[in-house]
Each structure stands twice: as structure tokens, then as C-alpha cells.
Design a protein around this nucleic acid. Sequence first.
DNA 1: TGTCTATGTGTAACCGGTTACACATAGTAT
DNA 2: ATACTATGTGTAACCGGTTACACATAGACA
Lengths: 329, 329
Amino acid sequence: MATIRDVAKRAGVSVATVSRVLNQNGYVNEETERRVRQAMKELNYKPNEVARALFKKTSKTVGLIVPDITNPFFPELVRAVEDVMNIYDYTVILCNSDEKVEKEREYIEVLKQKYVDGVILTTNQLAPEEVEEWDVPIVVLDRPLHERYPSVVADNYEGARLATRHLYEVGCRRIAHIQGPNHVVNAMERFRGYQDEMRALGLGDRQLVIQGNYQLKQAKEAVMAALAEHDMDGIFAGNDAMAVGALKAVQQCGLRVPDDIAIIGYDGIPLTEMTTPELSTVSQPIYEMGAMAARILIKQIEGKPLEKLHYQLPVQLMVRQSTSRRKTT
Amino acid sequence: MATIRDVAKRAGVSVATVSRVLNQNGYVNEETERRVRQAMKELNYKPNEVARALFKKTSKTVGLIVPDITNPFFPELVRAVEDVMNIYDYTVILCNSDEKVEKEREYIEVLKQKYVDGVILTTNQLAPEEVEEWDVPIVVLDRPLHERYPSVVADNYEGARLATRHLYEVGCRRIAHIQGPNHVVNAMERFRGYQDEMRALGLGDRQLVIQGNYQLKQAKEAVMAALAEHDMDGIFAGNDAMAVGALKAVQQCGLRVPDDIAIIGYDGIPLTEMTTPELSTVSQPIYEMGAMAARILIKQIEGKPLEKLHYQLPVQLMVRQSTSRRKTT
DNA sequence: TGTCTATGTGTAACCGGTTACACATAGTAT
DNA sequence: ATACTATGTGTAACCGGTTACACATAGACA
């Protein structure tokens, strides 16, 4: 690979001049610039980003820490981040934390050593104090961390109320909620939305909460068990995977969806359109969330002011077959 | 951040000595080493990977180019690569190429400028000649590129024969194949497997090929159209997404799966266990493929010899509800 | 006693860029 | 004519590591 000195020699100028041409700063004579560009082309010169990073303390690279890319919620998010970063000539280092603080810390350490310009973080685990001393710009995605850090989340509370009300409106009166893990903030917000809406609908004392962990299998079993003991005609699952679990459980018990039990999920991952019946869900603007987080991070990196620190995006009720039945109200 | 010079000063030694301690090479007195380590701890010193990369021309970073992380085949693959790389202290830059040569080329260029130590490539588009001059170690994943480059693929041909034979064995005689895109090598191999097996079964003249593009929607429509014109009792889809499309089309036409038409997919993505009925499929060892590609890349980077250049992993027939019917043979 | 080798440490060049500073020239305002 | 400014270019230090080389010391061996 040719270096800047090779180019300088060939063009008969100093490295400083080549650097000026490269970075479009300082004064360079038109004719000189022409010669330099010619030399670059002839040598197929590409500046060494590592050398540049060393001096500038910036690497045109960002870190993206997600719990697990294998979780169907994240690929679209990751894709969005990558797309936006790509436009601005940033490169994305992907990290899977499995929600473990330890791994998160390690990754942050490595990312700092590699001079990443910023980090997008999806976590529940990290205590805000820990983040205090990282001098890298951070944007928190999907799950809020602390006031101080810019965040992009969807409106979990409203979404949950929307879903619960929707079940009510298609005639459900005994509406169960499959709750996500306790340590996950968005799961708790959705749970709160369910509770408040149930009360608002005058069904406060008919609440039925099934404990889930955001996984299909566990949800399926929990719903099987719940079906044996309780009467229900609607299920609001804390995420789509659990909604599929519920769907399977209900069908396996010989009940029909939506006629006997209506089901609605949460997230709006592609999977919801692939089941039979197709799943109603509360759709989060996943791509938009990722893209926005990326744009905010870039603004931070470039030192531009943010209009807002916390962005909450609206969610959308997607009515599909799993809740489409004659209203019995 | 403390630098190596800070550490040297604090420990009362030269930077060379600190570097020796850091890299465990050269002679260092035990007592000196103790002092240096002490100083490192006190200053919370972490070596700057960028400076190191500049001198060593290696960055403990690899590039991973996939067509689209949003395609459900890839998250698990990516996860596997990341897991293995993490063990060996490498970091992964994720790139989505959308199968476009242009994007692939750009990414490779950027990756080289960032001194990545190697690249794992999933592509059909790139001509082997283009790769010729890249001096970075490359491993080709899922789709073979050229003899010269190490590759990890699953046995598409055998898998396709397996799937076709399985449909035959559960009683199907008019077996259709939904073919993947023409430019994708593995789609062609699966197609070939279907053809050969059909002939071997004495059904050579009963072949029915439906053109798909690996997408659910398009496959669904193509199958709808095909159902109107042709008689069939089994469908072997070139991938799982198209199998779901077929499933939907068949159900929408009022036919039963598997009783009227049995369906089998290909890939073994998690989705296949989420449909009703659950989809039979030919399962590729996706995680293992990713992990193996990662291990091979590391061997290459470290200059260790490879036992083999081309690895072909076996696939596994997963019989589920969508092909479970009484045999009519 | 002289030579050789193993051990231990420091100096400074190097990786490939960026940029502060010095210096030169030409044009312009006074 | 003088001073000042805008333009144009080069030298060398710097970013934070690594390592070739020089040098010093001590013990072993002839």
C-alpha cells in the first residue's frame, strides 16, 4: 500500500501538501492539487485510517451493543444503525452482551481502546453510575438508562393501553397479560399500561397476570398452565415471541383464535405476519428507532447540539386476524 | 487516558521495559516487572490499540460481510462469528451488502484502510478475480467463491435430495419445487438436488418448478398461481421463508397441510417452529458454520496451516407437522 | 585472565498520518 | 516605499505504541 510519502515524492511536494489536498484544508495551489491528485490515482493511494485515528483520536467507528442479535427484535435495529452510519462513513462494531454487565463492561473497555467515536447501548443491566466516567458519547436505545444520556424509546406504556383497549373493543372481558421479565424496564412499563387500562375499563379486579420471560417456549407453557386454571377470552402478550407461544398453547388446547381467545402481541417483528392466524400486535417503529439513535449519536460525535435529549416514538396498533372477530359488546 | 510513557515514568523505567512487560517478551527482571504492573494498576493503564495497530499492521478486528442481517438466516451466523471472535479477542465489524458488488467493494476498501486482520464474506456477486489482489485473509461462508479461498458451506445438494425423498416417502407423487434466485449458487444446488432425486424416484417427468426469490410474499403469490393451474401434493421450498409463503397460499386456498399438500422448507431457521403446523425443514448447522468460518479465519490470520480448504457440513432432515401424514405408498 | 553467553535495560527510529510554525512571495492599502 | 495580508509550501514534532540496536553486568568456561 502506498503511503502519503510515496504520493508526496511522486508529486514532487511535501507530505503536508498532500495532507492538505486530502483534507481540503489550508491553501493549495490549483496546479499543485492537480499533480497531487494525479499521483494519488497513479499509486491507487488510500489514506491509512489507523494512522489518522491515532493522531485525531477518532476512528470513524462506533460500537453497537445489543443483548442478542438472535432475538428477532434486533436485526432490524442493527440494520438501521448500520445503514445510517454507512451514509456518514462510520463503521459499526457489533457486540452481543447477553444482558450481562460483565460483557458490557468488557466491550466498552475494548471499544474505548479502539478509539470508537461513540456507542449505542441497549441494556437494562448497567447502572448509570458506571457509565459516568466513560468519555465516549453514548446513546441509549430501546431501554432508558439515565436522564443524562440521550435515549430513543417507543411509548411502551401507551402501547400497552392501546393493546388492552383493543382487546376490550373486540369484546374481551377477561383479559390476561403475559408479562416480560421483571428486570426489563420496557416489560414493566407495558405491565403498568395493562394495569391502568384495565382499571380504566372497569376491569381492575379481573386482571390476570401470567409471568413470562420474553421467550416463546416458556410463555407457551405458562399459558397452558393458566388456561387450565383460569377463564380468559383475550391475551395481551408482552412481546411477539410470547404471543406466538400463547397462540400455540391456545390452539393446542383445542380453542380457536380469535373466536375463543383473541391474542395480541407487542413489537411488530416480521414473525407476526407469518403465523396462522396472523398476529395482531403493537408495532414499534424499530427501523426508525435504530436510525434515530444513529443520527443522534453522530450529532453528539460531531459536537452538534441536540434539540431534545429523550425521544419517545409513537407505536401503532396493527389489527390482524388474531383479534378480528365480531364485536360482542 | 494514561500512556505507556506515564507508566514508564511512574515505574522509573523506560517505555521499552513497559512494552516488554505488556507483551511478555524480552528479558525483564522480576522486581522491575512488579513495579511496572503496580504503576499500570495505579494509573488504570490500558494500551492504546490504535497505536499498536499502526505499528503492527494488525488490529484485532475482522470484517463480516453479509447480504442482510434482517434475513432470518443470518443473525445466528453473525452471532456465532461474534462469539468465536470474542473468545480470541477479536472484534467484529458488521457490513450489510444487500448482495451488491458495489457495496461489497466499498466495504472491503474501508476494511482494508482500517487494517482489519481478515474478512468473512457471504456473497454470490463478487467475481473471484476481484478478490485476487486483496492481501487480507478471507473466508467464504455459505456460498463458495473460488477454489483458492477457504470456504464453509452446507451440503445443499444432498439436503435437497433428502427433502425431496422425504416428501416421496410420506406419499407425495406430484412434488413441486420453489426455486430460489438464479444467481444464488446454493439455490441452484438445491434445484439440482431436487431434479436428480425426482429422476431417481422415477418422477423425472413430473417435475414442477415454481420460480421464487427467497421471499415469503413472492413465493406465496407464485404458489397461489401454481395451485390454480397444476395439481400437486407436496412442495419443497428452497428456503424456509418461501415455505411459509407456500403454507399460507395452500391454507388460503382451503387445502390442508399436510393432508392435501405436504410442505418442507430449507435452512432450519427458528421461524419453522413457530408456524402452525410447524414446518418440516432441512436444517443447516447455521451456528456451527459461522463458528467454523471464524475459527478458520483466525487460523489463517495467525498463519497456522489449515487441514482442509473447503468444509462442507452435513444437513439434517427435521420432520415436523407439515409433512407428517399417513403414508399412502 | 580473557572471552563468551545470558540477562536486563535504555535510546531512538519507526508505523502513516496531521498540523503548528516558519518562511516566502505577491498583491494592496497607506 | 513601507507595512500588512492572503496565498502557498516545507520542516519537523506529534499521536502511542513496538523493537532494533547499543550497552552494561555477571557468571561460566577455557
